[in-house]
Design a protein around this nucleic acid. Structure first.
Length: 535
RNA sequence: GUCCCCUUCGUCUAGCGGUUAGGACUCGGGAUUUUCAUUCCCGCAACAGGGGUUCGAUUCCCCUAGGGGACGCCA
C-alpha cells in the first residue's frame, strides 16, 4: 500500500481552538500510526480575513501541542509551497485547463444579482442553486464581456444537471441529476444529488481559488492519501469529488469525524469552548494532558485505555475507531459563564469558569504526577514566578527548599497554574485563618497550650538546615511530646499539626514542617499559642 | 425550507443479533493514610419514543421526536 499522507489545513483567520486542534491531532496521530507523513498547509486564500498574526498564533499553538509536521511552512518539503497564497499560479494553470475542456466556464453574474436571486429562492422556500445563467455563453459573448471590463468568476460545470431554455434549473427533476457517492471511513457511504449542488464557483473574481477547488488541487498535488476533517466538510465533499473526477484524479480516502460541541450541545463557538488553545497552556495544562483529553473526544482506544502518552496514542490511534456522534467539550461551566465571552477574558477569570472536577483536570493531574521530577520543576517554574510569592533569587531548579515544596505539592495539582494556591503558605508571613481552628476540638482542648509549648521547645533546639528542618527529627519530637504528656494518637498529632501550621490539613507533618523551616514553624507555634491564650 | 448526519449512565465512551449492557470522570459509602489529598474496594446512574424484521434486538429497517451540520466570490 502506498504511503499514508495526512494534512492539517488551517486558515489563518483566528486562533486555533479545540475543534481545529483535535482535527490536527487526529491527522498527526493517524500519520504516525501508519508510519506516514503529516503535512501542514496554510489556507490563506481569503484575503480579507487572513492575517499574519493569526498565522503565527496557529503555528505557535501547533508547536506547543507538539505536532511535528514533516512538510509545511518553516520546514519545507517536495510539494511546496505550503501556503495557498503562494500557489496562485498553480490554481490558475489548472482552472484554465478546466475552462479549455469546457468543464468550467466564466460567469459574469454580479454578487448583487446572485444575492437577489438567492433571497427569492429562499422566499419561495427553495434551496439556492445557481441558475446557470452564464453556463452557455458563447465564446463571442465571453470575449465581449471581458472586453467591457466585467469582472468574472469561474464556475465548475456540474455534470448531469437539468437546465431549461431560460437557464433555470429544476432540482430533483427525474433524470436530471447524478449521484455522487462518498465512501467515508467514519460516516460510511453517503450519497448526494448533483441537482442540489449546481455550478459552483472555483475561482473568485479576485482571481483567488475558492476553497472547494484549491483544496482538491492541493490535496492531489501534495499526494494526500487521507483527508481527515470535521463533518462540517462532508457536504462540500461531493463538490470536491466532482473536481477530482473532472481532472481524472484519484479521490483520497475520506474520514469526516464528529464535530465537538460545547456544554450546551451547540457547535463550539467563542462563547463556550472555542477558547484559544494557548489559554489552556497559560492555565497550566500540559500539552501531554491536553492531547490525551482531546484524543478521547470522539475516539477510544481498542483496549479501553484512557490515560495514554502521546507515544501510545501514536501506535493505537485509528480513524476507523472514531465516533460519528458529536463529543462534548465539557470543561467550562457555561451556566456560570453566561453573558461572558470566554475567548476574551483573562486567564485568571477563565479559570473561575472551569469545572474543578472535569475529566480534563483528572487527566491533567495524572500527567503531572507522571512527569519526571526535573521536567516537572522546569515546567512549573514559570508559574511559580508568575505568583510573585517566591523571591526571585530562590526561584530556580537549584533551590532545594523550593523544589522540595513543589515536588511535595505536585499530587494536589490539576494544573501547573494551581501552584499559586499553595505557595503563599510557605513563603508569605503566617496569617492564621480563624475558620481553620476556632471550632476544632483540638484547639479547644485544654492540653493544646502545653503540647504546643513542649513542641516549640524541642523545635527550638533543632538545627536549621538551610531553611529546612530535618523531617526525622520532627517525627522524634512529636513522639517525645506525646510521651512526656501522656497523649498519643490522633489527639497528639492533630493538636501539633494545628499548633504548628494553623490548619487541620496538609502535607504529611514532618515533611510539611521540614519544608516550612525552623523560623516559620516557631512563628506559627507562637502565634497559635497566643491565639489560644486569648480565646 | 432542502439535503446530510447524530441519539448507550450527568460527561467521555465500549458494544458491531443472545452480555447481570462494560470501563473512565463526577457523585455517594467504606478501607488504608494518626490530617487533607493520594491509593484501594463497594455503590448510584444509560440503550430517546413507536413500529417492524427475527426464535431473539442496544445492535438491522422504517416512522416520530430531539439535536447538530451544510446549503457563500468563508474556509
Amino acid at each position: 500500500m502506498s504511503e499514508v499522507r495526512t494534512r492539517f489545513a488551517p486558515s489563518p483567520t483566528g486562533y486555533l481552538h479545540v475543534g481545529g486542534a483535535r482535527t490536527a491531532l487526529f491527522n498527526y496521530l493517524y500519520a504516525r500510526a501508519q508510519k506516514g507523513k503529516f503535512i501542514l498547509r496554510i489556507e490563506d486564500t481569503d484575503q480579507a480575513r487572513s492575517t499574519e498574526q493569526s498565522y503565527h498564533q496557529v503555528i505557535d499553538s501547533l508547536k506547543w501541542l507538539g505536532y511535528e509536521w514533516d512538510e509545511g511552512p518553516e520546514v519545507g518539503g517536495p510539494h511546496g509551497p505550503y501556503k495557498q497564497s503562494e500557489r496562485l499560479h498553480i490554481f490558475k494553470e489548472y482552472s484554465e485547463k478546466l475552462v479549455a475542456e469546457k468543464k468550467a466556464y466564466p460567469c459574469f453574474c454580479s454578487a448583487d444579482e446572485l444575492e437577489r436571486k438567492k433571497k427569492q429562492r429562499e422566499a419561495m422556500g427553495l434551496p439556492y442553486v445557481y441558475d446557470g445563467k452564464c453556463r452557455n455563453l458563447s465564446a463571442e459573448e465571453v470575449a465581449e464581456k471581458k472586453a467591457q471590463g466585467h469582472e468574472h468568476t469561474i464556475r465548475f460545470r456540474t455534470p448531469a444537471v437539468a437546465t431549461d431554455g431560460q437557464g433555470t434549473r429544476e432540482p430533483g427533476r427525474a433524470g436530471a441529476s447524478k449521484e455522487v457517492v462518498v465512501e467515508d471511513i467514519v460516516q460510511g457511504t453517503v450519497r448526494f444529488d448533483t441537482a442540489l449542488i449546481g455550478d459552483f464557483i472555483i475561482v473568485k473574481s479576485d482571481g483567488f481559488a475558492s476553497y472547494n477547488y484549491a483544496v482538491v488541487v492541493d490535496d492531489h498535488l501534495m499526494k494526500i492519501s487521507h483527508v481527515i476533517r470535521g463533518v462540517g466538510h462532508l457536504s462540500n465533499t461531493p463538490r470536491q469529488v466532482l473536481i477530482y473526477e473532472a481532472f481524472g484524479w484519484q479521490v483520497p480516502h475520506w474520514a469526516h469525524v464528529s464535530e465537538i460541541v460545547g456544554s450546551d450541545h451547540k457547535k463550539l463557538s467563542k462563547r463556550h469552548g472555542a477558547t484559544p488553545i494557548t489559554a489552556f497552556r497559560d492555565l497550566g495544562y500540559t500539552a501531554r494532558a491536553f492531547n490525551n483529553y482531546m484524543a478521547l473526544l470522539g475516539w477510544s482506544s481498542p483496549d479501553g485505555r484512557e490515560y495514554m502518552t502521546i507515544d501510545e496514542q501514536k501506535t493505537l490511534f485509528d480513524v476507523a475507531r472514531c465516533s460519528k456522534s458529536p463529543a462534548m467539550f465539557d470543561v467550562f461551566d457555561l451556566a456560570k459563564a453566561a453573558e461572558v465571552d470566554l475567548a476574551q477574558v483573562s486567564i485568571g477569570e477563565l479559570e473561575t469558569y472551569l469545572f474543578p472536577k472535569s475529566k480534563l483536570n483528572w487527566l491533567s493531574n495524572q500527567h503531572i504526577r507522571a512527569t519526571n521530577d526535573a521536567q516537572f520543576i522546569e515546567e512549573i517554574l514559570p508559574f511559580v514566578r508568575a505568583t510573585a510569592v517566591v523571591p526571585e533569587a530562590e526561584c530556580n531548579a537549584q533551590n532545594a527548599r523550593l523544589t522540595g515544596i513543589l515536588l511535595s505539592l505536585r499530587v494536589y495539582l490539576d494544573t501547573l497554574g494551581q501552584i499559586k494556591n499553595y505557595l503563599a503558605d510557605f513563603y508569605l508571613p503566617f496569617a492564621p485563618q480563624k475558620q481553620n481552628y476556632v471550632s476544632s476540638e483540638y484547639f479547644n482542648d485544654e492540653k493544646f497550650s502545653s503540647l504546643a509549648a513542649a513542641f516549640k521547645r524541642l523545635i527550638e533546639q533543632m538545627g536549621d538546615n538551610g531553611d529546612t528542618l530535618n523531617a526525622e527529627a520532627i517525627k522524634d519530637a512529636v513522639n517525645q511530646v506525646g510521651k512526656e504528656a501522656g497523649v498519643k494518637g490522633k489527639p497528639l498529632f492533630m493538636t501539633l499539626r494545628l499548633a504548628s501550621t494553623g490548619r487541620l490539613e496538609g502535607l504529611e507533618l514532618p515533611v510539611y514542617l521540614g519544608l516550612l523551616g525552623k523560623a516559620r514553624v516557631l512563628d506559627r507555634l507562637e502565634k497559635m499559642i497566643s491565639l489560644k491564650a486569648a480565646s
